[in-house]
């Protein structure tokens, strides 16, 4: 087995004897774990994107079927709404590149546009990227009050506080543990039965 394949197994945390089904299951599990959704508003989005690329490359290495899987490049440049003026276009570009201090400086120059929903929304996005969720919510709410029909602001607002509750992600882990406990119990039961069988013919 060549080094690239061995490395691919390591990335997917699988033994080198894993079947195609196991490879696919591991790939899907890891894709979900490092999904872009979990890193929205996190300064670690770049690390997560690198991790996803590694996982996709490993999967591609190990499966022929995966050749058709398109590698999702990290979304650095997003489509901008048609209504954006030059300031908001620059702001969006800065936010997409995570240049937060520059975005903050540019926003501070826009003193005469305090009631502009577009800038309020972008202020909210900047606060969100800094991890200041309360401030972000207040700005996006203010933008939505001024432009209630704007679909982008609505989606942005849902993203802020609409994530899964923390326990949901860990439910699987607890389920795994319960399964393992059940297996341990089964093992103990089998062992007892075996001993019983050997000593007194299963009385």
């Amino acid at each position: 087995m060549d080094e690239a394949r061995k490395n691919a197994f390591r990335v997917l945390k699988l033994p080198e004897t894993a079947t195609q089904e196991e490879i696919r299951a591991a790939y899907e599990k890891l894709e979900e774990r490092y999904s872009e959704v979990h890193y929205l508003g996190s300064p670690l989005w770049d690390m997560a994107a690198e991790k996803r690329e590694l996982i996709q490359a490993a999967y591609k290495e190990l499966t022929e079927e995966a050749q058709s899987v398109q590698t999702q490049a990290p979304q650095t440049e997003k489509a901008e709404p048609e209504c954006s003026d030059s300031v908001s276009r620059r702001l969006r570009a800065l936010l997409n590149r995570n240049e937060l201090d520059e975005a903050q400086a540019l926003l501070e120059q826009q003193e005469n546009r305090e009631n502009d929903p577009e800038l309020l929304y972008l202020r909210g996005m900047l606060a969100w990227k800094r991890g200041w969720l309360d401030e972000a919510t207040q700005f996006v709410d203010a933008a939505l009050r001024l432009a209630p029909q704007n679909q982008e602001y609505r989606t942005g607002r849902e993203r802020l506080t609409g994530g899964l509750p923390p326990s949901a992600r860990l439910k699987q882990q607890i389920k795994d543990r319960q399964t393992r406990r059940a297996c341990a119990a089964c093992f103990a039961e089998c062992l007892c039965e075996g001993i019983c069988e050997a000593i007194c013919d299963g009385c």
């Binding site: 890193y39 508003g41 670690l44 997560a48 991790k51 506080t161 923390p166």
Partner: peptide, 19 residues
């Protein structure tokens, strides 16, 4: 609302832990 704020912190901490 406060619970949502703390849940968000929990999720971001968990996502960082995964890395």
């Amino acid at each position: 609302y406060l619970t949502q704020l703390t849940d968000s912190s929990v999720n971001l901490a968990g996502a960082a832990l995964a890395l």
